[in-house]
Design a protein around this nucleic acid. Structure first.
Lengths: 236, 236
DNA sequence: GATTCAAATTTGTCAGACAACTTCAGATCG
DNA sequence: CGATCTGAAGTTGTCTGACAAATTTGAATC
């Protein structure tokens, strides 16, 4: 099994920079062919903890598990998350997105505003027709992150969006439309956009905070103490 | 190139559950052997966005980038980062850590304070002996994140520590000791701890912000506009 | 129509070979 | 003696062909 080899390499406690045994040696040690060894090393390379140089060898680049960040929770078989876990992810999102909105207000360029406008228009249409606009909701928040002109922030938001799609679904569901959730979310989005377009950093921060707090409430979460970070007023 | 294939598969916008072309087909399409195709697929499997079933085929399990987040920068061949990229990462860190410090001030328990004290004591010893304390520096920041009682935040900080170790190295280098950087960093850490221990959320936020701004300056970065997120006063 | 079974298909693994590149010891030259 | 060049050995990257294991498919059968 390739899995076995990966675990062995991970457990070998090789320090970054250390050279792995040659493929030939690993073949003998595990009694498998070079193809299996190479595929296992491919996975380690994808994880970022091994780098290879042709003619030289394979070297440890980072400790396993530290090359990437994953949102954990549930299991591969039962991926549903506990409310507590959703709340924790939302809190992480709160820290990033409120700050990102403020930065976006300072740095946004015209093309960023265009992206936001496009997403807003589409959500408005979905609002009128009762359709699903989760993808556009994602796109709006990614556009805000992109407006910070910080690629790392945009990538992080893109990453988070996948995990948040499921949490956005209720808002845009038929029930969400009837409950007025979609309309409420749209109003919050408009406020965020307005502040960013106006270059109002603290306003954008507050608008993003309000949006996240209300979005959490729509999911039945209790975001009472998130505001500790910046004493945001949470009007009921 | 295997890289090319991965990008093609990623760009093909296959929906989760969709079946990939067979290995044989991909071989013809890219003019490479099965070994190359299989290694590329191995990496996609490691990324979690492809799953294979023997005798059946390969299927898209998730969208690329969904499974994990990693800090990008440089190239696999030249992993050194540009100042701009380091600055971007610092900005992301700024958003997370200042908020985390504030939350930690509200939620910290005695055991969290103990972890921070331990790291502080070790850094104090390193300060006296002129030794390296990058690991303890990491440990302190992870302890702060742990004090938020939010596992996702702690995991994120643990993940970031890997990328930040290199940026902390100058502070604890012999030159850093001579320049007074280590002493300065230690003072900043003490302030953060003091605010968290006192349960002062806004004070912890400000102390963390000041630490990050100064740390960035020690690296020769320009953190002038980070404070847009919360109007932090940056005294020169 | 439902079941059974065998053939075709596909992934997983093995073996050997060669190309591209790196490394290093030894030869060569100043 | 020291620096430089050379070539052989070692290592990863890729190719080819083959077989095993699992799944899928379709025809034959009941």
């Amino acid at each position: 099994m390739a899995r076995q080899l990966e675990e062995w390499i991970s457990s070998e406690r090789l320090e970054p920079g250390a050279q792995l045994p040659t493929e030939r040696v690993l073949c003998e040690r595990f009694g498998v062919s070079r193809a299996v060894i190479r595929e296992a090393i491919s996975r380690l390379k994808a994880d970022g903890c091994v780098r290879t140089r042709q003619g030289s060898g394979a070297y440890v680049a980072a400790l396993p598990g530290q090359g990437s960040f994953r949102i954990v929770g549930g299991t591969p078989d039962a991926p549903e998350r506990l409310p507590r876990e959703v709340s924790d992810v939302f809190e992480l999102r709160y820290l990033i997105e409120t700050g990102a909105a403020a930065l976006a207000a300072v740095r946004r360029e015209e093309q960023d505003l265009d992206r936001m406008r496009l997403a807003l228009v589409r959500m408005r249409e979905a609002l009128a027709s009762g359709a699903d606009a989760v993808a556009d909701d994602d796109a709006f928040h990614v556009a805000v992150a992109a407006a910070t002109r910080n690629p790392q922030l945009e990538r992080f938001q893109l990453f988070m969006a996948r995990h948040l799609s499921e949490s956005r679904a209720p808002t845009w569901s038929p029930a969400g439309h009837l409950e007025g959730w979609a309309e409420q979310a749209q109003d919050e989005h408009e406020r965020i956009f307005g502040a960013i377009a106006a270059g109002d950093a603290s306003g954008a921060h507050a608008a993003a905070a309000a949006h996240l707090v209300r979005a959490a409430r729509r999911l039945g979460l209790d975001p009472q103490r998130w505001g500790a970070a910046d004493n945001v007023e949470i009007e009921q």
